[in-house]
């Protein structure tokens, strides 16, 4: 339940960041169609990233409280994620599309870690 809730929130967040950055460079009304269409790939990307890179930390350490998992692994995940995103932006020669993609990916993954801990009933009892 908490994963599906977090995924929904992350789709919303990444969609907003992605299009906000692109609209800061260029905006016209024709793009709105693409905004709606982009929900599909954004949903796929978010679900795939969360299930393959974030959820395993919590699933594999199910004996630990989510907050403990967060404290133990989040820092390294954040640093690695930042390094990969910065590398992607740098390799694209700071193109606006790469910036929007990697900025939304970075911020969304970071916030998803927080949601997975905050929304967890195991932790709220403690």
């Amino acid at each position: 339940m908490r994963y599906s809730k977090s995924i929904l929130k992350s789709i919303f967040l990444s969609g907003i960041i992605f299009w906000l950055v692109i609209f800061s460079e260029d905006f016209n009304a024709d793009m709105l169609f693409w905004v709606f269409l982009s929900i599909i790939p954004i949903s796929l990307c978010c679900s795939f990233t969360i299930f393959t890179t974030i959820a395993p930390w919590f699933i594999l350490n199910s004996g630990m409280k989510p907050r403990e998992v967060y404290v133990k692994y989040f820092a390294y995940y954040a640093i690695l994620c930042f390094a990969l995103c910065f590398y992607g932006v740098w390799k694209s020669n700071f193109s606006i599309y790469a910036i929007s993609f990697f900025a939304s990916a970075f911020i969304t993954t970071m916030q998803t870690w927080n949601w997975l801990v905050i929304d967890n009933p195991k932790d709220s009892k403690s």
Binding site: F74, A75, A78, I79, F82, M110, Q111, W113, N114
Partner: peptide, 10 residues
């Protein structure tokens, strides 16, 4: 590096 990258989230 951690502070710079993710201080806000923690």
């Amino acid at each position: 590096l951690f502070t710079f990258v993710a201080g806000f989230f923690l």
